[in-house]
Design a protein around this nucleic acid. Sequence first.
DNA 1: CTTTTATATGAATATATGTTCATATGTTAA
DNA 2: TTAACATATGAACATATATTCATATAAAAG
Lengths: 123, 123
Amino acid sequence: MEEKELEFICEEKHPHYQKINEVKCTEPDTEQIETLSNMFKLFADNTRLRIICSILNTELCVCDLCELLDLNQSTVSHQLQILRNAKLVKYRREGKQIYYSLQDEHIEQIIRNKFSTYFRRGG
Amino acid sequence: MEEKELEFICEEKHPHYQKINEVKCTEPDTEQIETLSNMFKLFADNTRLRIICSILNTELCVCDLCELLDLNQSTVSHQLQILRNAKLVKYRREGKQIYYSLQDEHIEQIIRNKFSTYFRRGG
DNA sequence: CTTTTATATGAATATATGTTCATATGTTAA
DNA sequence: TTAACATATGAACATATATTCATATAAAAG
């Protein structure tokens, strides 16, 4: 069990102090929130979403993506870097070209699990 | 069946023109991408996530949220407005206070469904 | 070894977004 | 009706993020 350092609100300070204190106990900590919002940020951009959708079922090289999505090569590379850092995509070199594909076979599942972990509601 | 206006790539223009054209057929359109990324943006912010988590199982008024999350009243109101516009939260007035709660009982489900719709991968 | 092609990356810029301040609106109590 | 409190909101500001340009790196071809 993890020990949380919580500052509970007292009655004088707030009329709903009890309810607030209860919610405080179930709050995800700063790190969890940060992790979760960072994950959502990855999907919260049109360009990245389009890239992800493009390689849902196949691998593509950078210039494929540029052509397909009608984007600047630099833009694609920068966004791929973000997806790489997040370990959302993997890549392999074949000659001069670098082929990108989804790192995990089940991005969908990953997200679902994160949701279940952090957003499970009490009965 | 919807008719898509696709500009297919020709052989001269790109070596992988076939693969690209195939992917082009399964791409979500601009509107779908926009909708999806907007949805992720809602969850891609620490403050909004914390607010959402706080009202997962209970309703809270604005000053409860300010106290609980140690945030400026204006900040909370602005973020609640965003969540209201997205129909993610609902509210009711009781005297001077306004109580917020989740609009839908199953945010988790909503997201999952969106995922399933847009991110389903071919076998 | 030089040139060409594919990709990556730092820096500059443009844009979007979150927070704060000041103040407006709406409700209750005096 | 006025004062006090809770919340909302426009404008200013600060910050984060995406895109572009210029250029570096890396591989292949000549």
